[in-house]
């Protein structure tokens, strides 16, 4: 079960749809974990989308390497982490020609970070598609110390930078690629509600 239906939320919260092929054209594809399955599905619907594709796959424990290699993208790269490919990804964005499309697939954390990087590089928002697969862990910015905590799965959670206990908002910044975390016991220090798994 890698597809998730998110509950309706506020307008700043990103929504995701299955990737849609724009055919053979310059393309960057970046996926992590179960996101590889979304790329495989896209290629099955329209194999031509791979003709000019630069594919970057971060397995994060998933095992799609054989099938991903078999797609025979123009360029294919496997990486151990997002941090490890940041420089490569930035270069791909900087080298991108007019009309290049970006396909992102996988966790919200990867999609958020990678879309923010692409927007900062000048890619228009309309050229970016994102399909969520797998974990619903969130990438959260602490509004107080500004540190980002990756892979947040509970609400509230502890900021990995300043240690405040934060609640998980749906308010999302595309520029930061992160949701907003706000101190949950600001008015009544020490009165922290019980941690719950976040829901889609």
């Amino acid at each position: 079960m890698t597809r998730v239906t998110f509950s309706p939320s506020i307008l700043s919260r990103p929504v995701y749809a299955p990737l849609e092929s724009h055919g053979a054209g310059p393309t960057i594809m970046l996926c992590d974990a179960e996101g590889a399955a979304a790329i495989l599905d896209l290629a099955e619907r329209d194999p031509a989308v791979m003709d000019y594709a630069h594919v970057i796959y971060i397995p994060s424990g998933s095992d799609y390497t054989v099938r991903m290699r078999a797609l025979e993208a123009r360029q294919y790269h496997e990486a151990p982490s997002y941090d490890a490919i940041t420089a490569r990804y930035r270069k791909a964005l900087a080298d991108a020609t007019m009309g290049t499309r970006l396909y992102l697939a996988g966790t919200e954390g990867l999609i958020g970070k990678a879309a923010a990087e692409a927007l900062a590089a000048g890619l228009p928002a309309q050229a970016i598609q994102a399909e969520h697969r797998g974990s619903i862990a969130r990438r959260m910015q602490c509004v107080h110390c500004k540190g980002v905590t990756e892979d947040v799965t509970t609400d509230p959670f502890t900021c990995s930078h300043c240690g405040l206990t934060l609640f998980v908002r749906d308010h999302f910044s595309r520029r930061l690629g992160a949701f907003q975390g706000v101190c949950v016991d600001a008015e009544t220090p020490g009165e922290v509600p019980e941690r719950q798994e976040i829901l889609p």
Partner: peptide, 21 residues
């Protein structure tokens, strides 16, 4: 938060307001 909302469009930065949308 300006730091969080900078770069957002009109609907995004008003997203948390209840009812009005």
């Amino acid at each position: 938060s300006l730091d969080f909302d900078i770069g957002m469009n009109f609907f995004e930065w008003h997203a948390p307001v209840p009812k009005a949308h």
